[in-house]
C-alpha cells in the first residue's frame, strides 16, 4: 500500500510538472532570465504548490505515523552552513546552464528526450561523486573541522 501511494504521488507530481510547463527547460530559463523577456510562471507554480502543501505539513508535524502506518520523517536540520550555501550555489549554476532541475530531468526520460537522459546520467554521476567524497572524508582519521 505505501508503495502504491508513493507511485501515485510521483504520478500526480509529474502530471503537475507537465501541466505547469516546468518540464520544458526553455520555460524555466525564461523565468531565470530576469534581464530579458521574463516569464514569471515558475513563481506561480511554487505558490500553488506551497499553498496546497502548507496545511498538510502543519498536520504532519502533529503526527508520528503516516496514514499508512509509516514513520513520519520530517527534516530536523536548521543549520545554515557552508554546505547548504555552496551546494545551493552550485545547483543554481547547473540549473541555469540547461534549465533542468532534478524533477523535470527525470520527467524528460519519460518524454523520450535524449538530452534529458544525458542530463540525468550526469546528475547521477554528480550524486555518486558526492557519495565518494563524503565516504572518503568519513574514512579519514581526523576530518577537517571546517564547517
Amino acid at each position: 500500500m505505501p508503495l502504491l501511494n508513493a507511485l501515485l504521488s510521483g504520478l500526480i507530481f509529474g502530471a503537475g510538472l507537465l501541466l505547469s510547463g516546468m518540464a520544458n527547460p526553455a520555460k524555466v530559463l525564461g523565468f531565470l532570465d530576469v534581464a530579458g523577456a521574463w516569464d514569471p510562471s515558475l513563481m506561480l507554480v511554487m505558490i500553488g504548490a506551497i499553498a496546497v502543501a502548507f496545511l498538510p505539513f502543519r498536520f504532519a508535524r502533529t503526527r508520528t505515523k503516516s496514514w499508512l502506518g509509516e514513520a513520519m520523517s520530517l527534516p530536523r536540520r536548521q543549520q545554515i552552513d557552508r554546505r547548504l550555501l555552496l551546494g545551493s550555489a552550485l545547483f543554481g549554476i547547473g540549473w541555469g546552464i540547461a534549465g533542468f532541475c532534478p524533477g523535470p530531468g527525470l520527467l524528460s526520460i519519460g518524454l523520450g528526450l535524449p538530452q534529458g537522459l544525458l542530463f540525468v546520467l550526469a546528475m547521477l554521476a554528480g550524486m555518486a561523486l558526492f557519495e565518494v567524497i563524503e565516504r572518503a572524508r568519513a574514512a579519514k582519521p581526523s576530518p577537517p573541522t571546517s564547517r
Binding site: S9, F13, V52, M72
Partner: peptide
C-alpha cells in the same frame, strides 16, 4: 496552467507526506 500545475505538485507532495511520511 502554472497555478493548476502547482496545485497538482502540492497534491502529490501532500499525498507522499501523509501516506508515506516522506518529503517529496
Amino acid at each position: 496552467s502554472a497555478l493548476a500545475g502547482g496545485t497538482l505538485i502540492g497534491l502529490g507532495t501532500a499525498l507522499l507526506l501523509l501516506g508515506n511520511g516522506r518529503i517529496a
